[in-house]
């Protein structure tokens, strides 16, 4: 029982990272209607920027904030330069461009910072929290940061004019444009925020999986699984989905021999296919209706 509880808590902690990536995926999906396959590599690149700043002697939290700001700007730039010109292109073009971005960021990170695995500092320390060993300080810190982020996002979308404008632009671009919202810039803003959320997730998971250019592929896959499980049209659903995926992954790894340990990605595959087949709108998403 104690093991079960411990693994569930650890799963929740990793689940927060999947939740953040899922959230970033959903934000992009809401803004442009496509799944960003480069989301993981964007987060990885941001984490490398943070690592570099810390190597140069910047205090952790200043590096943290600077990285979030740089990532936000980077996300906006990518949207403006790469995605704006193809906004009406078919799905295949988008997928190909995302794959191109993925290759560029991955190779660039390897070129600048090489492919060796690097340790990444944690601001919370790794001592067990409250001395009972159920959860360590970094895991607790991850959960706290994610909750803060969620509260911030909720407040932003619920109570600010820009947040309202962004929701309107995602919901109905044509009407939004008619009431004077600059839909294009709202999309860019969504990209920037997705990049910033990804950066936070990257910096939180890096102390656990260690820093290297390929660190995010698995995390991205779980993020997709979480986003699909929760529903691609629902930010809250994405977070819940990410947490569930984290717990399922951890429990399967602990209690199912062989399969849980060696086939972790396959679990994500099964979750994705099962949800898409049985409940394509996810737990909290809206069903997609087509007019024929």
């Amino acid at each position: 029982m104690e093991l079960f509880l411990q693994q569930t808590l650890a799963g929740l902690a990793t689940g927060t990272i999947y939740a953040c990536i899922a959230l970033a995926i959903v934000m992009t999906y809401q803004a442009i209607g496509h799944l960003n396959f480069a989301q993981g590599e964007m987060a990885m690149f941001s984490t490398f920027i943070a690592w570099q700043l810390i190597q140069w002697g910047t205090p952790y939290w200043i590096a943290f904030l600077a990285t979030v700001a740089v990532s936000f700007a980077g996300g906006v730039l990518i949207e403006r330069i790469v995605l704006r010109p193809i906004q009406h292109a078919p799905v295949l073009s988008h997928v190909a461009v995302f794959i191109g971005l993925l290759a560029i960021l991955n190779s660039l990170a390897g070129f600048i910072w090489d492919f060796n695995v690097k340790p990444f500092p944690t601001p919370f320390g790794t001592a067990p929290l409250l001395g009972n060993g159920f959860i360590d300080a970094h895991q607790a810190g991850m959960i706290a940061i994610t909750l803060l982020l969620l509260a911030f996002l909720y407040g932003f979308f619920r109570f600010t004019r820009v947040g309202l404008a962004m929701r309107a632009a995602a919901h109905d671009p044509v009407s939004a444009r008619l009431v004077g919202i600059r839909v294009g810039w709202m999309t860019a803003l969504g990209w920037g925020m997705a990049a910033a959320i990804g950066a936070i997730a990257g910096m939180m998971i890096a102390p656990i999986v260690f820093l290297e250019p390929n660190m995010m592929l698995g995390v991205l896959l779980y993020g997709f699984a979480g986003a699909v499980l929760g529903g691609l049209s629902s930010p809250v659903g994405a977070v819940i989905g990410g947490l569930i995926v984290g717990v399922v992954e951890n429990l399967a790894g602990t209690f199912i021999p062989v399969i849980g340990g060696e086939l972790k990605f396959t679990i994500a595959l099964v979750i994705i296919v099962a949800v898409l087949v049985m409940k394509p709108q996810g737990l909290l998403g809206r069903p997609v209706l087509h007019r024929v």
Binding site: V82, P85, S93, I99, A103, S107
Partner: peptide, 13 residues
């Protein structure tokens, strides 16, 4: 990899 990626994107454009 980066050159490859740039080529893909240019091609799509």
């Amino acid at each position: 990899g980066a050159v490859y990626g740039v080529m893909i994107i240019l091609l799509i454009f």
